[in-house]
Design a protein around this nucleic acid. Structure first.
Lengths: 342, 342
DNA sequence: TAATTTGGCTCAAACGATTACATAACAAAG
DNA sequence: CTTTGTTATGTAATCGTTTGAGCCAAATTA
């Protein structure tokens, strides 16, 4: 029933150590021996026992994905991306949702690391932005890769995947400006998230570059939720004679969907009277009425890259320094909520 | 740094086997000894090494969650529910998304089971409905708990959590009938999913019980997707002079959202001219315009229950027979898409 | 009281891999 | 034809738990 390394060794007529070498792609194995062993592996359908490897080896065969994100689509994309690389490399994935508001969070994480002998961690925002957590991991000498909002940081030599929200927000704003909008409002997400300040900064810079004054009254500070989009839009548009807003940028798609909802409540026609844009290109941004103009972010690829980076840190020590940081820039997707489509 | 069972044993002044007994709640440990050991565990912050337990023990400390479901919200709910129980019981969760259309699926699953020495599996629809897979697992003597659509099955003594889609669909239909609707259309989800036939049957029975003839032309066979909802509604409503449809039931919320979209395209006012209902109560059903009437299904609780059931099968053999099956019935949530709210 | 069961605990052998160390084979070089 | 240095392979200890056999004393039975 269960095949062990010894069974393979016996069938191949070598020692189990040699099988181990072949399995782990270690050098110093003759081509011929390698082939014989692989044939035996295949014949017996041998699967190395993870528990045994973890126990015996110095580095384990499991990595963790840590997140505190209410967006199910985002989480699933991250999981799938990381998981697909894990399968390729023979790793196991331990998912670890947690609440970063929870004081027990760090302890829970430590417990998890200890129990599962995690080889490394993929950290997603907003956890990836918490310096206290990073310091903690550093002091434990724990490998990790962070996914975070930003434009790169030369002073930081830890492995990071940056999502250039700044540039994406700049592009969206530019898009609206090119359509003739002058008074563009912005509904922010959670203040603590780095993406919020990055997106806001991109918006502000685009305005500035086009000689348009930033007006604080056009910025609503909310959080990344549908409800926040509703109340933000209501607040901004309730007396629009004064502000003359013709476009609202949502901090993410949920906010934009909320704004859409509010506009409907207030009988404002989209995009004729008001343009609305989102961020992230969640699946439902194609399901709203009208469909949302947004910035597409390739979470699947981002997370795959994160996992790859982590593995390179974990195992072989080659070319670690190179390619340690990478920046992905979400790309503008124009749909119906900003302009009537041809 | 890393605390082992031996450290605990030394501190407590007992053998490591005794510590093991305490940890695993085995009998034959004096209360006093138990307390001493637990104190030592606490003092050292001892965490049993999962790899070692898995390796040494007969049953491992990991269960798998297998799913093939495009609905991110559903998957996340399932994960969180199962995970919360896993944490309580000290188990690890291995998530296994897969495609049931994929011919390699069964092999991949087997590989996963073998590699991780999984103690049991939680199967979600539509995988839980595949007899071939079940037979395979049975022949491997693998523990599993299925979550599936249905009303219970006395002839089946395998552990199942049923979701009574039939009753929920019946209730939704009744709701529409009580509002005076006579010509109620139904847009089905994927034909292969049991939930599709269950929901359809509930709808049909409610009609029959109210003396209304089932008309096949009011039933659209689609799949569980937004696009299907759009095309289904278009098809059903394109020449509504003949059919006189006043209500459309979507097989799930995505279909309903699609129907909403189509209605908008066709300039049909919801709920005034047409009522629309969904199923599952996904988060976005509160974010559509108008908000969707739907059936709420408590996935978090369902998945927790599934995990609990699995654990009871895996470890202690007490009261296994009792409570092996359980039925959850989704409950009607009336929102704006079926009637104007007071 | 002697004989037997039982509770409470210890000891050593797995579990299935990796790791460090030791050895064998086979060149090329002296 | 030995020496030296690689390259290829094998051996034994180890990882941290569980498991099963076995021991001792207390409790029960005859």
């Amino acid at each position: 029933m269960k095949v062990t390394i010894n069974d393979v060794a016996k069938l191949a007529g070598v020692s189990m150590k040699t099988v181990s070498r072949v399995i782990n792609n270690e050098p110093s194995v003759r081509k011929k021996t390698h082939d014989i062993v692989m044939a035996a592996v295949k014949e017996l359908n041998y699967q190395p026992n993870l528990a045994a490897r973890n126990l015996a080896g110095t580095s384990s065969y499991a990595i963790g994905l840590v997140y505190d994100n209410p967006n199910a689509y985002y989480v699933i994309d991250m999981q799938n991306g990381v998981l697909s690389r894990c399968r390729k490399e023979g790793y196991e994935l331990v998912i670890h949702p947690c609440s970063y508001a929870d004081s027990e969070m760090e302890n829970e994480l430590k417990t998890m690391i200890q129990r599962s002998r995690i080889a490394g961690l993929v950290l997603t925002p907003p956890l990836s932005e918490q310096q206290a957590l990073i310091d903690e991991l550093d002091s434990m000498n724990m490998h990790y890769v962070r996914i975070l909002s930003g434009r790169g940081d030369d002073s930081d030599n830890s492995p990071c995947i940056y999502v250039n929200d700044y540039a994406a927000a700049y592009e969206i704003t530019q898009h609206l400006l090119s359509l003739g909008h002058k008074n563009i409002a912005f509904i922010c997400g959670d203040e603590e998230h780095k993406s919020t300040s990055e997106r806001l900064a991109g918006y502000q810079q685009a305005l500035a570059d086009n000689g348009i004054k930033n007006r604080e009254e056009l910025v609503y500070r909310g959080e990344y939720s549908f409800e926040s989009g509703v109340s933000g839009a209501k607040e901004l548009l309730k007396d629009n004679n004064a502000l003359q807003i013709t476009a609202v940028m949502g901090g993410n798609d949920e906010i934009a969907a909320g704004a859409l909802f509010a506009a409907r409540l207030m009988d404002i026609s989209i995009p004729n009277e008001l343009a609305i844009t989102g961020f992230e290109d969640s699946p439902f941004s194609k399901q709203t009425w009208p469909k949302l103009t947004t910035a597409h972010q390739d979470n699947d690829i981002i997370s795959q890259h994160a996992a790859r980076l982590l593995f390179s840190k974990t195992r072989g020590a080659r070319n670690q320094d190179k390619d340690i940081q990478r920046i992905f820039t979400p790309s503008l997707v124009v749909r119906d909520s900003s302009q009537i489509q041809g």
